[in-house]
Design a protein around this nucleic acid. Structure first.
Lengths: 348, 348
DNA sequence: AGAGAAACATATAGCGCTACAAACCTAATG
DNA sequence: CATTAGGTTTGTAGCGCTATATGTTTCTCT
């Protein structure tokens, strides 16, 4: 067991440079009032000794580190990793370090680590009352969840984009597979109220309804099917949709995973996508462009959101005020899974 | 700007419990020699005050925290996130916290944070001389890269599994698209030597060759095509393979992404997979089972590797010796992209 | 040249925690 | 009943750094 050599401290550097420890500290932190010549001497000593700051000591002593953290529950979701990569890029550019913390099942004790060690935190899908969020709201930004500073996507607008595309193509029989609608059913009154914090699915559904209404297109109630963002739910509901007496000619799926599920079911039933059925997804995950047919989908600017969140965090950390940006706009990625409805090709 | 109230310290708790700070520390750390009654009193005080340890102070003072870190460069790769999720699960079960650090482009200063704050680190695809790895090798385990304690997958065996399957199906015209072969070409002598640290691709290729040799199957040199693990490279080479005068009836792709690329090209050329062409991938990423046809592929137990790495790290952290496990065995996931060669169906 | 103001450098005092060793209690011995 | 062994508790002394205040220079201006 090799004993790691005693780490170099600020005092060692001070000795080498023939200055006080404080001066070394001042140099490290780019404080003013250090003569260039002295600064250089210290810098040399740092290089010579191979000194590195101990962020813990620094944090303990009151200074905040140049580290930001992202706190999330899952990691293997494209949703999360997209945000993360945007955040990482941005952090790198701003010369901050990024730590990703996965909170475990129970509330993590050491969650406080980062909240103290880092200058700020980005929360992805935080709980209603996330500890960090509650404890130091002024250094926290959240995506897809409540906090003092939530970043949001214009889900409603995205849905309208998707519907405008479909409607524009001539579809009138457009179904939707919703995301997980976050309704809480009161066990006593039976009343169910939307969880206003996590309403992406509902917003997309609203976009669907409004688009239909504005276009004066009427669809049967059965065209609205509940999904849960995941593929199996879409497979089930697509089968139901396609076995309807008057099946839809287009499906707006509230996630890419569900869109892919819908396409697979359609193909299994001998239908061609997009000739017989158009499908639009939501998210634009990396797979979306890799499937056959490549998926037409609503792109969420997750990468940019991650990047912006970090930039805002840095602003906050460095004491500047930051205005909250408006909801992020989505972008419709038109690829191969949508086409005019078969009717039209026959009719005119 | 609400000033966060001064955080509760060990001293506050001590005062509440009418004991010394040291006793509180002893209780927190489950040290022996604390009377149950006293312990309880302290525990109550902790609950009452809402005290939480300050991991930085603890780390500074010499104790190592219950935190492990994973250090990686990328996050949006299925490869990485699979390992990560395994690690997260395991860490959670062992009551450790997990921090994921993304090292930026330059060597991160605060990389040392975790190496000091955490009890150990798992390095994913570390550089040849990663700082943490070099500085405290006794607390580091790596996956897919050099370190004192590298975890490895039996790439050779995996390739042989894939080939045995193909050969068993009756294929004799089997091509391979290799991964990124890490050869370094000496600019002077022209000699090229394999980078022994990152030899996955070469190992898979060796498995391919040996399987062919053992089965006494001869294939033209053109059946070995260089890829780089990514889809575009496979699309290019598959086109070449299929335009050969005697095209292969099966392709062993060294990654799932490349396998999917191969399938798409084949489909574009009007071939049916697996009827006209069998394709085997390597990795078994989540997408593999979601494609049509679902991909037959060699599964790397990444999840388990992540989980084991953490378990080993905990052992190391707690002072026990851990033997290095043998290379992880792969598993062939037989799905829909492989079938007997068309020849056979005609011939007999 | 001397006063005052900058600019520069340094001592001091912790941040919250844990080793370590010393002190304090029991209760079981001789 | 003093002695000792053992468990139990508590000071003391930092860990490496920074805020603050307090010295030093050095420069500027009259």
């Amino acid at each position: 067991m090799t004993q790691p050599p005693r780490p170099i401290t600020i005092a060692d550097v001070a000795q080498h440079a023939q200055v006080s420890a404080m001066t070394v500290s001042n140099v490290i932190n780019n404080k003013p009032h250090v003569r260039p010549q002295t600064r250089q001497r210290v810098l040399d000593a740092i290089a010579r000794t191979g000194y590195r700051v101990n962020p813990m000591a620094r944090a303990l002593a009151g200074g905040r580190g140049r580290m930001l953290s992202v706190i999330t529950r899952q990691l293997n979701l494209p949703y999360v990793s997209e945000i993360l990569m945007g955040a990482a890029e941005s952090a790198d550019a701003l010369n901050y370090d990024l730590a990703v913390l996965m909170r475990g099942t129970r509330t993590s004790n050491d969650l406080s680590v980062m909240s103290r060690l880092s200058a700020g935190a980005l929360l992805i899908q935080p709980d209603s009352r996330d500890e960090v969020g509650a404890q130091l709201p002024e250094h926290v930004i959240s995506v897809d969840g409540p906090s003092a500073r939530p970043l949001s996507v214009d889900n409603y607008g995205g849905a309208r984009q998707a519907m405008a595309h479909l409607l524009g193509l001539g579809h009138t029989r457009v179904a939707i597979i919703t995301g997980a609608l976050a309704f809480r059913v009161d066990p006593f009154t039976g009343a169910h109220s939307a969880d206003s914090d996590r309403d992406d699915a509902a917003e997309r559904l609203r976009g669907y309804h409004d688009a239909l209404r504005d276009a004066r297109v009427k669809v049967p109630r059965t065209y609205v099917q509940d999904g849960d963002y995941r593929k199996p739910s879409a497979e089930l509901t697509t089968r139901q949709l396609l076995s309807l007496p008057r099946p839809p000619t287009a499906i707006f799926a509230s996630s890419d995973a569900m869109a892919i599920g819908a396409i697979h079911v359609a193909q299994d039933l001998g239908l061609s996508v997009p000739r017989d059925l158009s499908v639009v997804g939501f998210d634009d995950f990396p797979i979306a462009s890799q499937t056959r047919p490549a998926l037409t989908t609503v792109r969420q600017p997750l990468h940019q959101m991650g990047a912006l969140a970090i930039r805002m965090l840095v602003e906050l950390a460095e004491g500047r005020a930051v205005p909250m940006p408006p909801p992020f706009q989505t972008e419709l990625m038109i690829r191969e899974s949508t086409a005019p409805p078969p009717d039209r090709e026959k009719a005119p």
